[in-house]
């Protein structure tokens, strides 16, 4: 009961911050539509270490700015642990600035900062029924050759449009207050850029680290939290540019503590996997094969993600739950604040 209250409290906090964000964006006359492709939202690093992600093999592409993931038992049986993950890309959120697009292109350090994601999650554990699992992680995209900021054709289209039909500045009647204008030509330029993105070959690589702890008896007092797992990984993605197919690979080292009656012990090993993904306009589906050296076994998984509502994707997977050592159907919801697929 206490754990459920905590999770509800988290959700309320997130909703309040979302309302604030929505109000801020409404000042521009638009919703929070931005510039990354929402059908390639990477998995939450903090969910990964808690095995709450729908897939094991994580994507390598650039992070989104703010993504909320909700793992739910609503559509499943009771074996699935409900949980919440918040992924934030803090560079701009915390006031980071760029001089220009060319600085983003040419300054590797700034580009790394702009593509670094922090992640926080909590799940209501079935393995430790009296405790709440909490985790945090960091994910850094080292490169993404399909980063749309590098699409010079799109930049040229934007410049052409911005240079056309500028209202004549009449004397003694300046537009002091900013006016926000919808621009179908710019929207069309972005649609064309997305088509180029889908048919373009390219790769990306990211690395990450996450740590997970148990809040004993769901208490957040410092002496009640114990660390039970660490993991670090490298994940890569290559898009073939044909049939909207991509291959993903991941290489992860995991160290975890076993809690046993005769005394605690440690397990460690490599978890590696390959996934083949198809990126459709409304649907993503994938299959993956994983070798888990920690548990000395080979696993399989299937995944589907649907974009039915603006900003929201619903996903489901069929994969092994390591905590319960059984295959389960896992549903969930992602709320992507970085862009809407079905705008307006």
């Amino acid at each position: 009961m206490e754990r459920s209250r905590n999770i509800i409290l988290y959700i309320l906090c997130i909703l309040l911050s979302l309302i604030g964000s929505a109000q801020e964006d409404s000042k521009t006359g638009n919703e929070a539509h931005k510039f990354k492709l929402d059908y390639n939202v990477p998995e939450s690093p903090a969910f990964s270490i808690l095995d709450a992600n729908p897939t094991t093999v994580m994507r390598g592409n650039a992070a989104q700015e703010v993504v909320i993931s909700l793992a739910s038992s609503i559509f499943s049986n009771n074996a699935i642990s409900p949980g919440l993950a918040v992924d934030v890309n803090p560079f701009f959120v915390l006031g980071g600035r760029l001089q220009s697009i060319n600085e983003y292109k040419n300054n590797f350090g700034k580009r790394i900062l702009a593509n670094t994601q922090f992640s926080f999650a909590t799940v209501d554990s079935k393995k430790f029924p009296n405790d709440l699992l909490i985790s945090s992680g960091i994910r850094i995209t080292l490169f993404d050759t399909k980063d749309m900021i590098f699409d010079q054709e799109l930049s040229n289209s934007i410049d052409t449009e911005l240079g056309n039909n500028i209202p004549r500045p009449n004397p003694n009647n300046p537009i002091v207050e900013t006016q926000y204008v919808d621009n179908p030509t710019l929207e069309e330029a972005y649609k064309n850029a997305k088509k180029r993105y889908l048919s373009k070959r390219g790769g990306s690589l990211s690395l990450g680290y996450a740590i997970a702890g148990r809040a004993l008896n769901s208490s957040y007092k410092t002496d009640s939290i114990t660390t039970y797992r660490h993991q670090a990984w490298l994940s890569g993605q290559y898009d073939f540019g044909k049939n909207k197919m991509s291959i993903n690979g991941m290489f992860m080292y995991r160290l975890e503590k076993n809690y046993e009656e005769e005394g605690d012990s440690f397990n460690n090993g490599i978890i590696s996997g390959l996934a083949l993904k198809h990126y459709g306009e409304k649907l993503i589906f994938s299959g993956e094969i994983i070798y888990d050296d920690v548990h000395k076994e080979i696993g399989f998984g299937a995944y589907i993600e649907a974009y039915l509502l603006p900003n929201i994707s619903i996903y489901a997977s069929y994969s092994k739950d390591e905590n319960l050592n059984q295959y389960y159907f896992k549903p969930g919801v992602k709320y992507n604040f970085s862009e809407s697929k079905n705008k307006k």
Binding site: H33, K34, P171, E177, V181, D182, Y190, E339
Partner: peptide
């Protein structure tokens, strides 16, 4: 505005 939806206008003299 974000470029994928529109633009903003302002001026001075």
């Amino acid at each position: 505005n974000y470029c994928n939806t529109g633009h903003s206008i302002f001026g001075n003299q």
